[in-house]
Protein backbone atom coordinates (compact mmCIF):
# COMPACT_ATOMS: atom_id res chain seq x y z
CA UNK A 1 0.00 0.00 0.00
CA UNK A 2 1.08 3.56 -0.67
CA UNK A 3 1.32 5.84 2.36
CA UNK A 4 -0.02 9.36 1.92
CA UNK A 5 0.98 11.96 4.49
CA UNK A 6 -1.10 15.12 4.71
CA UNK A 7 0.16 18.35 6.24
CA UNK A 8 -1.74 20.08 9.03
CA UNK A 9 -3.02 22.73 6.59
CA UNK A 10 -5.51 20.12 5.38
CA UNK A 11 -7.07 19.32 8.75
CA UNK A 12 -10.12 21.45 7.84
CA UNK A 13 -10.85 19.01 5.03
CA UNK A 14 -9.39 15.66 6.16
CA UNK A 15 -9.35 14.75 9.86
CA UNK A 16 -6.43 12.33 9.50
CA UNK A 17 -2.79 13.20 8.91
CA UNK A 18 -2.08 10.03 6.94
CA UNK A 19 -4.01 7.57 4.80
CA UNK A 20 -3.11 4.55 2.69
CA UNK A 21 -4.12 3.94 -0.88
CA UNK A 22 -3.86 1.38 -3.65
CA UNK A 23 -4.32 4.07 -6.32
CA UNK A 24 -2.01 3.64 -9.28
CA UNK A 25 -1.24 7.31 -9.97
CA UNK A 26 -1.09 10.62 -8.15
CA UNK A 27 -4.29 11.69 -9.93
CA UNK A 28 -6.12 8.53 -8.84
CA UNK A 29 -4.83 9.04 -5.29
CA UNK A 30 -6.25 12.58 -5.20
CA UNK A 31 -9.54 11.40 -6.72
CA UNK A 32 -9.76 8.77 -3.99
CA UNK A 33 -9.14 11.44 -1.35
CA UNK A 34 -11.88 13.58 -2.90
CA UNK A 35 -14.25 10.62 -2.89
CA UNK A 36 -13.55 9.73 0.73
CA UNK A 37 -13.31 13.32 2.00
CA UNK A 38 -15.57 15.49 -0.20
CA UNK A 39 -14.55 18.73 1.53
CA UNK A 40 -11.14 18.48 -0.10
CA UNK A 41 -12.64 18.67 -3.61
CA UNK A 42 -11.28 21.78 -5.38
CA UNK A 43 -8.91 22.48 -2.49
CA UNK A 44 -5.90 20.51 -3.79
CA UNK A 45 -6.83 20.89 -7.47
CA UNK A 46 -8.65 23.75 -9.14
CA UNK A 47 -11.68 23.21 -11.36
CA UNK A 48 -9.45 22.58 -14.41
CA UNK A 49 -7.88 19.61 -12.62
CA UNK A 50 -4.43 21.16 -12.08
CA UNK A 51 -2.81 21.25 -8.65
CA UNK A 52 -3.28 24.62 -7.01
CA UNK A 53 -0.26 26.87 -7.15
CA UNK A 54 0.87 26.42 -3.56
CA UNK A 55 0.07 22.70 -3.25
CA UNK A 56 3.17 20.56 -3.47
CA UNK A 57 3.02 16.79 -3.98
CA UNK A 58 6.14 14.71 -3.42
CA UNK A 59 6.52 11.02 -4.33
CA UNK A 60 9.35 9.41 -2.39
CA UNK A 61 10.75 12.88 -1.81
CA UNK A 62 10.60 14.13 -5.41
CA UNK A 63 8.17 16.92 -6.27
CA UNK A 64 5.76 16.23 -9.14
CA UNK A 65 4.83 18.82 -11.77
CA UNK A 66 1.52 20.70 -11.20
CA UNK A 67 -0.08 19.29 -14.35
CA UNK A 68 1.92 16.49 -15.97
CA UNK A 69 3.00 15.10 -12.62
CA UNK A 70 -0.51 13.94 -11.83
CA UNK A 71 0.20 10.92 -14.05
CA UNK A 72 3.13 9.87 -11.87
CA UNK A 73 2.70 6.14 -11.11
CA UNK A 74 2.41 4.89 -7.55
CA UNK A 75 3.26 1.40 -6.41
CA UNK A 76 4.47 -0.81 -3.60
CA UNK A 77 5.84 1.03 -0.64
CA UNK A 78 5.84 4.49 -2.15
CA UNK A 79 5.35 7.43 0.16
CA UNK A 80 3.46 10.53 -0.91
CA UNK A 81 3.67 13.84 0.93
CA UNK A 82 1.11 16.59 0.29
CA UNK A 83 2.44 19.91 1.54
CA UNK A 84 1.72 23.61 1.11
CA UNK A 85 4.41 26.12 0.34
CA UNK A 86 4.65 29.36 2.26
CA UNK A 87 2.83 32.29 0.65
CA UNK A 88 1.21 35.53 1.61
CA UNK A 89 2.09 37.96 4.35
Amino acid sequence: MVAVRLDAMLKEFVPRRSVTTSAGTVRAMIEELEENYPKIRFRLRDETGALRRYVKVFVNGDEVDRTTGLATPLAGNDTVDILHSIQGG
Partner: peptide, 23 residues
Protein backbone atom coordinates in the same frame (compact mmCIF):
# COMPACT_ATOMS: atom_id res chain seq x y z
CA UNK B 1 -18.87 23.70 -5.30
CA UNK B 2 -21.70 23.57 -7.89
CA UNK B 3 -20.44 26.82 -9.34
CA UNK B 4 -16.98 25.35 -9.68
CA UNK B 5 -18.37 22.47 -11.72
CA UNK B 6 -19.93 24.95 -14.15
CA UNK B 7 -16.53 26.50 -14.63
CA UNK B 8 -14.92 23.11 -15.14
CA UNK B 9 -17.12 22.63 -18.19
CA UNK B 10 -16.35 26.16 -19.36
CA UNK B 11 -12.65 25.62 -19.10
CA UNK B 12 -12.74 22.45 -21.12
CA UNK B 13 -15.16 23.32 -23.83
CA UNK B 14 -15.91 26.95 -24.33
CA UNK B 15 -13.03 29.27 -23.66
CA UNK B 16 -9.54 29.36 -25.04
CA UNK B 17 -6.31 31.06 -24.13
CA UNK B 18 -5.70 32.44 -20.72
CA UNK B 19 -9.38 32.30 -19.78
CA UNK B 20 -9.31 28.52 -19.78
CA UNK B 21 -7.84 28.70 -16.28
CA UNK B 22 -9.67 28.44 -12.99
CA UNK B 23 -11.47 31.17 -11.05
Amino acid sequence: PPMMAVLKDRAKNEMGGSEAGPI
